[in-house]
Design a protein around this nucleic acid. Structure first.
Lengths: 187, 187
DNA sequence: TTAGCATATTCAATAAAGTGAATAGTCGCT
DNA sequence: AGCGACTATTCACTTTATTGAATATGCTAA
């Protein structure tokens, strides 16, 4: 369960409201930990009850009131302790691969279209990551320690999307060149 | 929710008991859809109630009795329909990247050790995948259609683990060569 | 002026996932 | 005779995740 940790991670940098947190989430930790705004609010409430966050209510005139959450000392300790504890590789769950495993049950074109569709999505995600790299990480060797860590997560994103792209190409090539009648198939 | 689909995928190839299903799962679909045996049994029961599976009770003498589950026609249709429906890229959730994002909060050695630990895990997983490729997919060009699909999921596993290995190396290099005092850091 | 969008949050219901424990029989080993 | 390992399954509890809806205000553009 890293959602609470992801929230603490974002708030420890800069306190903000649930609404803003969610927006900041999208552009950073959200790339490797997806969630919804309802869940964020729920966790914020819980974290406050546990004393890992503290909230300050801000009355606003031109907008609805809001609560600014910031990480307490206990919260920072909790986060650091979590980071320090060794963890295993996160288990993966991927629909497309399950589909592909049973892909022989449906027409070949269906699978090829689905692969093309996924390729497109990964291409877009890669473009987004590369734009971030271009805009915020022009000189990796001159980054602060904190930003170096952020940069490495971005590097992972880039490599990850490239891997998917390459695999999509390989799979479309490999599965596409197969004669549908399966004339030489063994096993 | 692809667990039910993953179960159907395995059972459509070959009916078996929950116990055996779980074991077969580990060596195939389980690589990209992790689950527990309790969950498998629970889903088997539900799928039977829905008429997507049918169970046959087998009395055994030397062992506990068991139920052999097989996919019904409705089950096959349900699976095929799911495969045919286009889907979006599965959202990722990765602890390590969240940790890395906030990695500046803990000593550098902690992070480097964690990266090394993960590198080791990915290396082992890669070795396992490569052994499978060696043992069961020696001649990719001579595979049956079904096995070609299986092979592509394996190829993804191999590429995925390689990507992680390369990234771990890059990250350890990049973060390891940083002077802890952060003398030139901007931002 | 009113529709739509952005800000800002909460509640409720359900589905799915994760964890621990319990049961029960057989087999081989010591 | 007892212990651990393997086969085989079920129950209960708890935490997470997903989805839909509701509420309230202000701003802007058609």
């Amino acid at each position: 369960m890293a959602l609470v940790h992801a929230i603490l991670t974002v708030l420890v940098e800069q306190p903000c409201s649930g609404y803003d947190l969610r927006k900041r989430f999208e552009g950073s930790v959200g790339f490797f930990w997806k969630t919804s705004f309802q869940q964020i609010y729920r966790e914020l409430t819980k974290l406050e009850e546990q004393g890992l966050l503290q909230a300050e209510e801000i009355q606003q005139e031109s907008r609805p009131d809001k609560k600014i959450y910031s990480v307490t000392q206990a919260g920072q300790q909790y986060l650091s302790k979590w980071i320090t504890q060794p963890s295993e590789v996160s288990p993966s769950k991927d629909d497309l691969l399950v589909k592909l495993f049973a892909g022989y049950l449906v027409p070949q074109e269906t699978i090829l279209a689905e692969l093309a569709h996924h390729r497109q999505q990964h291409l877009q995600q890669l473009a987004q990551y590369e734009a971030i790299a271009q805009n915020f990480f022009q000189h990796p060797d001159r980054l602060s320690t904190k930003r170096r860590f952020h940069y490495m997560t971005l590097r992972h994103g880039i490599r990850y999307e490239q891997e998917w792209l390459n695999w999509c190409d390989e799979a479309m090539q490999f599965l596409g060149t197969q004669s549908p009648a399966d004339p030489l198939g063994d096993v």
